[in-house]
Simulated assay, not measured.
Amino acid sequence: MNDKINVLLIITVISLFISLLFAFFLVTVKTKYKISNYLFAAFLIITAIDISGPLFELVSDGPSNLGMLRNNLAFLQIPAFYLYVLSVCYSDFKLKLKHLIHLLPFVMANMILMPRFYLVDAASKINFILNRQNMIELQFSHILFHLQTVVYLFAVFMLLRKAKKLYLENNAGTNINSYNWLFQFTSVLSVLYLIVLFKNIFKFSDHPYISEWIKIVILVLELFIICWYLYKALNHPDLFRNIDSKLKLVSDMVLEEKNNEPSSVSEKEYNASLAKLKQYMVEEKPFLNPSLTIQDVAVAIEIPVRDLSLLINHKLEQHFYDFVNTYRIEYAMDILKDVTKSKVTILEILYEVGFNSKSSFNTAFKKYTGDTPTSYRKQL
């Protein structure tokens, strides 16, 4: 038992140190993405408080209002993460009064504990905790917590799905990897919360000691997740580049046209716009800009963004992201075929044609040609 307590304390101290250090770094570092940093710092601080249970129990004399409040802070963890993802996805995100609604589960969990815990004496608090398996308030809190977690995680996945689609329809940068990585991060968090669910089930069962062992697994996983995020953030400081929340999905624009009035743009006008677009892409080579957006192209060829988006994403049935990458890959293929440039490395080529990530270049190249850049060059 002592060995288990020692392991728990060691992991807790390490997790707390890394979480709080990372949170301090996020709050103090100079960046234009302050809101995102503050929200993730809040997520880390809440997580640190949540995992501080073993240390808190060492210094506390028994059940207390502060201890219960510390437990219930877990209700703020997933909402903080949701708001963080929202701020990462949308460049115009701002915290507003309406976001206070995310405090509702936390307030509810504390309100129901008022009569039989917060407002009673120490002896009654001890009795409440000793009989926690039969306390309807705690059972309600656990059900509410897990229900909240499922709803928020579902909302995060839906948010990332929409944001990724908007990015593909409006941007040709290689930062699509940020959405893929956030999806992975959310998936790992989902697994963590699933383990927390099992822990709480055993907590109210006839085998509460299993819950304590699962707690160690959760602490190790939380430490791994925090270190993973820290590694990713430090190695890729420019990973996240968000989009405007006012942008609409092409599918929504098409639906609006069907519901309102027939499109005023004829097939002839679409063909003329397409010819103008292709001429611009070939002659001006805007795809060499790694941060090219559909707005940039629309301004250059004097076509409304909405019409250009419908032309590429709907008429051509191709995301703007893939449309631009097609020109990049064709340009890269021309360089690879040029015998006078046989000394130019693959890395130099990918930067020259508008990519800024080797993985993105290899993925796009293989998608278009069926080969990797290296194997394609060898076949020439």
Rank of each mutant, 00 (worst) to 15 (best):
F240Q: 08
L192Q: 10
E261S: 12
W228G: 01
E137C: 03
Y327L: 08
T372L: 13
K232Q: 12
W181R: 08
P373F: 01
V339K: 13
L277I: 00
S266R: 02
V151S: 09
Q379V: 07
K268E: 14
R70F: 08
L274R: 07
K162F: 02
K164D: 10
G370W: 02
Y209T: 13
S52I: 08
I10V: 15
P373V: 01
E256R: 11
K203S: 13
A41K: 00
S359H: 10
E137W: 01
L44R: 08
E267Y: 11
L76I: 05
L138E: 15
F145T: 09
R70M: 13
L113W: 01
Y179C: 03
E317W: 04
P208M: 10
K276T: 04
S375T: 12
K246L: 09
Y82G: 01
P54C: 05
S60G: 07
K203I: 07
S360D: 14
A163I: 06
K378S: 13
Y229S: 06
N362R: 13
C89K: 08
I210A: 03
N37E: 04
L347C: 05
F25W: 14
P286H: 03
Y33K: 14
G173S: 15
V217P: 01
S60K: 12
L192N: 11
Q379L: 10
F154E: 06
V191N: 10
K94A: 07
S273C: 06
T293Y: 03
N289C: 03
Y38I: 11
T28E: 06
E169M: 10
F224T: 06
L113N: 12
Y331R: 12
S91M: 10
N242I: 00
Q184S: 11
S211D: 02
L83F: 02
F202L: 11
L97H: 06
Y327C: 04
L69R: 05
A163S: 15
C227H: 00
D61M: 10
M135W: 03
I143V: 13
A298W: 09
L336W: 00
W213L: 14
K94C: 01
S178T: 04
S309C: 13
M68Q: 14
V297S: 01
L153E: 10
L26N: 08
N2I: 12
I335A: 00
F128M: 09
I225E: 11
K232D: 07
I218D: 05
K215T: 07
L194P: 09
H146Q: 12
I176N: 08
A41V: 01
K367S: 12
L153H: 11
F43L: 04
S15E: 14
S342M: 10
A272Q: 11
E257R: 13
K215Y: 15
T326V: 09
S359M: 06
L336F: 02
L138S: 07
A122M: 11
I226E: 03
K30N: 06
L189K: 02
L230A: 14
L26A: 04
N325L: 00
V27Y: 14
K125A: 07
K246F: 09
Y118K: 08
L66S: 12
E284G: 00
S245Y: 10
F128R: 06
L113A: 08
V188E: 04
Y179R: 02
F93I: 08
Y152Q: 11
L159M: 15
N2A: 12
D121L: 04
T47I: 06
S266P: 07
L16N: 14
N6Q: 14
F224I: 15
W181V: 04
K215M: 11
Y152M: 15
V156E: 01
G354T: 03
L144Q: 07
S263H: 07
Y229N: 06
D238G: 10
